[in-house]
C-alpha cells in the first residue's frame, strides 16, 4: 500500500480543517473552531488503479504568537498552502510560509488553495498577486469547503503530484 503524508498549511481561520472535513467526511460547519496542535485524518484514494492511503496532517494555523512547528513536516510528501480569498493578508502570509517550508522539506509538491470561493462578493484578493504566483508555474486552485467546489479535485491533484515525484 502506498502511503502519502500531506500537510495543510496556512494562517489561522483560512479553512484548513474545513477542507479536510469536506474531503474526508463530506461535512461542513460555518462555526469557526481553532485547531491546536495537529489532527491526522486518513482517506484511501483510487487514482487510475493505484490505491493510495493519504494521511492528512491538519496543522494549527500560524498567528502572531504561534509559529509553525517544523517537526510536523518531517517526511511530508506534499502540502497545501491555504489562503482565504476574503483576507488578502492570508495570501501574503502563505507566500512567507512557503519560503519557511522550502527550507525544511526542500522541493516537494504543493498546491496553493485560495479558499472561501463561495464568498467572492467579499473577495479581497488582488488578482495581480495571483497572476504573479501563476507565472511561477505554481498550481493554484480556488476552493470552497462550504460548497465543495474543487475540493476533491485539489486533493486528487496533489496526491497525483506526490506519486509523480
Amino acid at each position: 500500500m502506498i502511503k502519502k503524508k500531506i500537510c495543510m498549511l496556512g494562517v489561522f481561520a483560512v479553512g484548513k480543517t474545513s477542507l479536510v472535513q469536506r474531503f474526508v467526511k463530506s461535512i461542513f460547519s460555518d462555526k469557526y473552531l481553532t485547531t491546536v496542535g495537529v489532527k491526522i485524518d486518513k482517506k484511501t484514494l483510487d487514482l487510475d488503479g493505484t490505491t493510495v492511503d493519504v494521511m492528512l496532517w491538519d496543522l494549527q494555523g500560524e498567528d502572531e504568537f504561534q509559529e509553525l512547528q517544523v517537526s510536523y513536516l518531517r517526511g511530508t510528501s506534499g502540502y497545501f498552502l491555504v489562503a482565504d480569498g476574503t483576507r488578502a493578508f492570508s495570501f501574503d502570509r502563505a507566500l512567507l510560509l512557503k519560503e519557511k517550508v522550502d527550507k525544511v522539506v526542500g522541493d516537494v509538491p504543493f498546491v496553493m488553495l485560495i479558499n472561501k470561493a463561495d464568498l467572492t462578493d467579499q473577495w479581497e484578493l488582488d488578482e495581480a498577486k495571483v497572476e504573479e504566483v501563476l507565472a511561477k508555474n505554481w498550481s493554484v486552485m480556488k476552493t470552497s469547503a462550504k460548497t465543495g467546489e474543487n475540493v476533491e479535485k485539489a486533493f486528487h491533484t496533489l496526491t497525483m503530484m506526490t506519486l509523480e515525484q
Binding site: K5, V38, I40, M55, L73, R74, G75
Partner: peptide
C-alpha cells in the same frame, strides 16, 4: 502509529 508517518524517512 499514523502520527509516526514520516519519522522513519531520512
Amino acid at each position: 502509529f499514523p502520527f509516526l508517518e514520516g519519522i522513519f524517512i531520512g
